[in-house]
């Protein structure tokens, strides 16, 4: 997935089939300065939402046609990062549980206090921002990894494993001096400030 972190200001996306609720949410969010986009159905949202736009999704769990849960599944298969806050009715607790298990960030019951919703939205936007920052960090690391030669990669893997230069030279049948040069190139290309930093970067990418 390609992420363009600079594409837009974080936006609150609202999907609700009830136009009155939709309009009310739009006005509320605008009144506190959030950019808002509203959609009347899950399908409208899938058709209109650009994948890489930062923000969060406020989603009515119960809608005719595609339900909130179905939209959530669709977004999961697309590896969407967008945190989802579900709006639920009184009898919808089992559905809310299902939504949480499928990775929803939070849910809020109708009718709700505006501050409760706004707090959750702020949390969601923070989470989205940090998710996206982490993601772009990982992408940067991967790009740097791609600049390494196969030999440099070999040396780096052994360094990260905690082996001394002498041992690496023995393992790869190189002179200790050559290992030192490769190692310095690795630190430079990976923009690592220390061995510990290098290890952290490699682990972060490998975790995926």
């Amino acid at each position: 997935m390609r992420v363009n972190a600079n594409s837009a200001r974080p936006t609150v996306f609202v999907v609700d089939d009830d136009s009155a609720v939709r309009d009310a949410l739009k006005l509320l969010l605008r009144s506190v300065g959030h950019p808002v986009e509203t959609y009347g159905s899950g399908q409208d949202f899938l058709d209109g939402y650009p994948d890489d736009q930062p923000g969060c999704l406020v989603l009515d769990i119960r809608m005719p046609g595609m339900s909130g849960l179905e939209l959530q599944q669709q977004l999961n298969t697309r590896h969407s990062l967008l945190p989802i806050i579900f709006i639920t009715g009184h009898g919808d607790v089992p559905m809310a549980v299902e939504a949480m298990q499928a990775g929803a960030m939070d849910f809020i019951q109708k009718p709700f206090r505006d501050q409760d919703l706004l707090d959750r939205i702020n949390q969601a936007l923070d989470k989205d921002a940090s998710n996206r920052a982490a993601l772009s960090e990982r992408n940067a690391i991967r790009k740097r990894l791609e600049t390494l030669t196969p030999r440099e990669r070999e040396v780096m893997d052994l360094v990260v494993d905690g082996k001394a230069n002498k041992v690496i030279a023995g393992d790869l049948n190189l002179s200790q001096r050559t290992v030192e040069i490769h190692r310095a190139r690795v630190m430079e290309k990976m923009q690592a400030t220390s061995l510990a930093h290098l290890v952290r970067m490699v682990l972060e990418v490998e975790e995926e």
């Binding site: 009830d18 309009d23 009310a24 949410l25 709006i87 009718p111 709700f112 505006d114």
Partner: peptide
């Protein structure tokens, strides 16, 4: 639904 809209 209308109550939610009204409150909001």
């Amino acid at each position: 639904q209308p109550l939610t809209a009204i409150a909001t």
